[in-house]
Design a binder for these strands. Structure first.
Lengths: 209, 209
DNA sequence: GATTTAAGGTACTCAACGTACCCTAATCGG
DNA sequence: CCGATTAGGGTACGTTGAGTACCTTAAATC
């Protein structure tokens, strides 16, 4: 067997030691994998370092502490694109969005996110970083789009297009998780949120001041 | 100064070593104080033991791990009695209850509770223990009472008395904390929750199916 | 090719959880 | 009233994991 990798034609050198961006991506990838496999509690710095085939130095040169790495790794694994459903009915659209959020949050990724939010505590920088990708403005935008369409169809009054209304179903879903813990919220709870709260509220704002 | 405690009349002995209930209460008290002073992260087992003038053995004989002690200590310090406001107006009642919850949650105790809920993770026993005293059924009962009174005054339709409606304002308040972190929610957010969501929903359920 | 930059390797400090062991005070049974 | 049992006190560990220090060595840059 000829020794490979060193003697290339024309003397092209293949670096054997990653640097900069390449190394950073490898670390993030390793951290994300650890997060999915063992949760945030299991994502130790040594394990990440070993998995990325590097050492803790390289990590601490980039992130000041574990929570920061955790947040960055979550972001790396949560390329959240939210496809806004368009079924032609406000109720079905709302249910579809809720079900999608429920599926995401009850997946391992959801558990990781909740761990991270807990661990981050009150560090506003990391809090923002997490929320951004997690469910923040993108989610609100989706619900506003959904309401806009309903108004255009004459299904909802214009007063219903309001940030508080838009964020309501997700807030209630989040609340279910806060109360019950990890297991996925049953579908009956989702329909209840839509039928008993969301739609009545949309109606209720019609004749309001 | 005469040496006290040992030589009592009639040979009554005052035990110098606490046992059972007395010691348990002392530990809980010490843990609760640590929680308030330094949060859950600062409530180390050694500190609690020192503060209670005992040692870790006595603690671990009673609680299997730190999280269990934390939950028990929180319960010890959170004798939650919820006085249901009765101002004669649904809006004012609702605002009063919300403001009270906001005050509690933005106090050190609220931060401790959030830390604990995070630390407890998915242990259902501790989760239940915490929620019980924290904001669970007592809170819901208060909101249902408030709705009942409004219905009696003719201020709200009977259909508004529904668990989902009752838990809504607290769910939205909790959501504010989840989104923004520790600082108290501004009063404008509370009035918005009441005026833009809660009251319209109560109205909206009136003519509903 | 020399110099500077950053990765690799490793050992270490420190804090904190949880455990083991042994001694001694309090309680309980007779 | 006196031994036996129970449970608290004291203390020293073992272990894990965060974060740091320091030196060596490869890669990039001048």
């Amino acid at each position: 067997m000829a020794s490979a990798g060193e003697g290339l034609r024309h003397g092209e050198r293949v670096p054997q030691r990653r640097r900069g961006e390449a190394l950073e991506q490898a670390i993030l990838q390793a951290a994300a994998e650890e997060l999915l496999e063992s949760g945030y509690a299991g994502m130790t710095m040594d394990r990440v370092a070993r998995r990325a085939a590097t050492n803790k130095n390289a990590i601490y040169r980039r992130w000041p502490h574990r929570a920061a790495l955790g947040a960055a790794a979550y972001r790396h694994l949560a390329q959240a694109q939210i496809p806004v459903p368009d079924t032609g009915s406000l109720r079905d659209d709302a249910l579809a969005l809720l079900r999608q959020a429920n599926a995401t949050w009850s997946s391992p990724r959801g558990a990781v996110l909740r761990d991270l939010l807990a661990a981050v505590g009150d560090d506003p920088r990391l809090l923002g970083l997490l929320r951004e990708q997690a469910d923040g403005s993108a989610m609100d935008a989706a619900w506003l789009t959904l309401l806009d369409r309903a108004v255009a169809r004459g299904e909802a009054p214009p007063e219903a297009v309001h940030p508080r209304v838009a964020s309501l179903p997700i807030a209630l879903l989040r609340n279910e998780y806060a109360l019950r813990g990890n297991p996925p919220v049953p579908d009956t709870a989702l329909t209840e949120i839509v039928d008993e709260v969301f739609l009545p509220l949309v109606r209720g704002r019609a004749s309001g001041p």
